[in-house]
């Protein structure tokens, strides 16, 4: 399973960070630094796997961004690579030719997409169209709710406020 997923820029700035295991905040920062330094210092054309502590780091560079996933020792590195690739493809379709700025300014959308694809460190959906549709549908719901206020949202989505749910 994926233990954490980082998206870092070539300068080492974190663009997305998702943790699928309990890690203390301080430790997170340390791991982030350590892993980022390792990945960024790798010359190109080498293999995309690194052994790190007891785990493996699978990374891939897309334009100016590095997508870094940490997986267990027994996991399939190649599938992890495909998972990362699928995520990038969905981002690409969603943002219509994704670039780093899209992710910087819409990091929350990227997280929403990620949550539709990977859950608890495992792939939850491999059909990119399904992922896209689910994210779009929720975006629309949110947009309607934003426009029409709480009541409108409830009506549009069939959300019925549970007793006591709203003041």
């Amino acid at each position: 399973m994926i233990k954490f997923l980082l998206v870092v820029s070539r300068q080492g700035k974190v663009r997305l960070a998702k943790w699928y295991q309990r890690v203390r905040p301080k430790e997170r920062i340390r791991i982030r630094r350590e892993v980022t330094a390792m990945v960024l210092s790798r010359p190109g054309k080498l293999c995309n796997f690194l052994e790190w502590r007891d785990d493996k780091i699978v990374y891939r560079r897309y334009a100016s961004l590095y997508f870094v996933a940490c997986i267990g020792k027994e996991d399939n590195e190649l599938i992890a690579l495909e998972t990362v690739h699928a995520f990038v493809e969905v981002l690409d379709q969603y943002f219509d030719n994704v670039c780093e700025l899209d992710i910087i300014f819409n990091f929350h959308k990227a997280y929403h997409i990620l949550d539709e694809m990977i859950l608890a460190g495992e792939v939850v959906e491999t059909n990119k169209r399904t992922v896209r549709n689910a994210v779009r549908a929720q975006d629309e719901l949110a947009a309607v709710a934003r426009e029409g206020g709480a009541a409108g949202a409830a009506a549009a989505t069939g959300l019925v406020p549970v007793a006591g749910g709203s003041r």
């Binding site: 997280y111 929720q138 719901l141 949110a142 709710a145 709480a150 949202a153 409830a154 709203s166």
Partner: peptide, 22 residues
Amino acid sequence: SASPSFHEKRVGYLGLMLLLDE
């Protein structure tokens, strides 16, 4: 996350996932 409107709920839950420490 307790908000009845979906957009706030969605962001609230995202915040929980990202900001909450154990």
